[in-house]
Nucleic acid binder design. Structure first.
Lengths: 207, 207, 207, 207
DNA sequence: GCTTAATCGAGACGGTACGTCGTGTCTTTTC
DNA sequence: GAAAAGACACGACGTACCGTCTCGATTAAGC
């Protein structure tokens, strides 16, 4: 997303300021948590970061992308590989993970920024694609890996549609969060139980 | 000097112009389909509707609410009672309805406006609540009614969590649409089959 | 003051409301003294007068004319005939009158409204003409009459240009007031003395 | 009135655009000549000058001040020292100058802008003060200087009130112009003759 | 060490849109 | 019919940001 500064034939001159980059991302994250996405402005970010506007325009193509980078920077760990826990008990593991997701979505420090990012993606397909590539896909892969592991261990029938399974497990959570509905651990538990029951009973199908 | 207006209601003065109201909603709906939510402006709506800006500000509190009303006006039928089909075959009925939903989400005439509305609700909880009250709740009620009917007919076990069932059936659809993922009739079918399997297998639970 | 509907040949319907007329003029005069001419608005006058805007538009062609009428109404006496004092001593009489003018111009209750009226006339020639006809001309006539009386009494030479004399006596006063310069009784006295000296010494001229 | 851009402590950043400044002043002067002061708008000036509104608001506090600067810029010479002619014959010199003033006031190219400026000063004392300081005072000084010269040469008595003299000579001209009265060379001549007669006959006085 | 050039803070610029206020007209209802 | 009330199309207000564009000042390579 940001330009690489690798060792190509660069004549001379100053390199990108890491201090400014971090100040911008921090300012963006804080501001969006205070005023929301609609009233987040490049000027506001620049002012709070103590940075010239051009420094933002030079390195980021849009407000949404700044926000996205800010999001990544504030949750460093998420970009690396995150394996789901594997205790051998699929149902227990999934409940654990879904309850953690519920807790994160309920955290007021993340609620506004995440809504902002969701809104940004709704009107910027390129940003949505970037999000898909850098956050959604790896996360989904690790979710899928855990299910495949269960399938290999015979806990899920060989014909179960695992892609669908991932959607069934997480989509209702996101939906409830977006709609402002009640989001509890009990809901997560019921979700896991019902979906697993469905998967276990599912007929073989091709995909 | 003048006596206060007697009795009920309105002392005098001009009434709200229905023509302007409709022109505004039409213009808003068209514009959002052309330029998206971020570049939709009150000024633009007013200009296209041939209306003064004040006429918009007088009757609507925000861009998002105009958009929401525009949405309602353009899909009048949705506010009234919409019962899901009931052929006696729950699975067939649900597949029919979900495939219809898929088709609607894929319709380019509704895609941009719906994304815009979704974005507007993401940064305006009041709007989200209004949407919940006027569109989501009635729709959800009719979905639930169909499931209860099936339950009464013995096609679903008495302990099945029908609220969860509604989320399981529709949330993955919305999620895929939002993320720009592939959204097909086959996906809808698989969704219905798996969820129904899960519900049928579900243990008795209290809610 | 307000005559009840008399027997003139009026077919039917309401007559002009004298109460509204007075309320409007009073409101206009007060408002212009509070906010000045630029920020005086028809809406503001109507609101303060407790009157519909149309009632103003129906009877007055412009803001300036309302102001002008307000001015007249607040200084009723000035429209009637106002004779300058004639004690027989021209110099003393003029000093008296000019000192009175100075006092009036210095009165803070009249300063802002008069500036407003002057400004209104600067950009509305029709208003200026109306002012000329209804206030300036009669006033000027009485000034001239006093000078002619003095001329007849031999206190001014027969060839003295009396039109010029009126300008010479009053214009410097208005000018100083407009420019915010110092405006004192002593100035008025010096003015009278010098102008009278000039007139007495003037050669015969035709006009 | 506008900030100096000299070499003192400016950190960095772009400097004021001289091209925009001139375009704005030119546009303001032209527009006020076309539509008058009341219908002169910042928006109109910006549009004609091809400039953003903010560029006007950044450097000028009000419409009146823009107009004033435009006035100065369009009559550059008037700010510098303008000595009145001194042929040795005071009466002839004054007649010359007053006739020139009459001609200028009659010039349609200047009439509307000058009325506009006069109106602006009537409702903005700060602007009036600025005008006094930058245009009126120097002009008045040179008028006074010419009279002092005449006094030194014995053409006016040592006790003559020269401040009053300046008012007596020019105020009637301005007054007639404002009121839309007839303004001719003959009037200027009569004015000079009568005032000079008055001054020559005036008693010694202190000021 | 000197040169050289990209980056930085700062902020002016031409613009678009904001949300408010006032204009002058029109409509509705009351007297 | 006139009046109070107030909606309407319109235009301007003064402000906030947009994204672009200079300005010096700073900074680190390559010579």
């Amino acid at each position: 997303m940001t330009r690489s500064a690798s060792g190509s034939g660069r004549a001379g001159g100053a390199r990108r300021s890491e201090a400014s980059r971090r100040a911008i991302l921090t300012a963006a994250f804080e501001l969006v948590g205070e005023v929301g996405y609609e009233r987040l402005s490049i000027e506001g970010i620049a002012a709070r970061a103590g940075v010239g506007k051009q420094t933002i325009y030079r390195w980021w193509p849009s407000k949404g992308v700044v926000l996205f980078d800010a999001f990544l920077a504030m949750s460093e760990n998420q970009e690396g590989e995150v394996a789901l826990p594997d205790s051998g008990d699929l149902e227990a593991d999934l409940k654990l993970v879904l309850r953690a997701t519920v807790a994160e979505l309920a955290d007021p420090r993340y609620d506004l920024p995440m809504r902002a990012l969701a809104a940004a993606m709704l009107h910027d397909p390129a940003l949505a694609a970037e999000y898909e590539r850098r956050l959604e896909r790896p996360l989904r892969a690790s979710k899928r890996a855990r299910l495949e592991q269960a399938q290999a261990a015979g806990q899920l029938p060989p014909g179960a549609d695992l892609e669908l399974a991932v959607d069934l497990l997480w989509a209702p959570l996101w939906r409830r969060w977006q709609d402002g509905g009640e989001l509890t651990g009990a809901f997560a538990d019921a979700l896991v139980e019902t979906v697993l029951a469905g998967l276990r009973a599912s007929r073989r199908r091709s995909r």
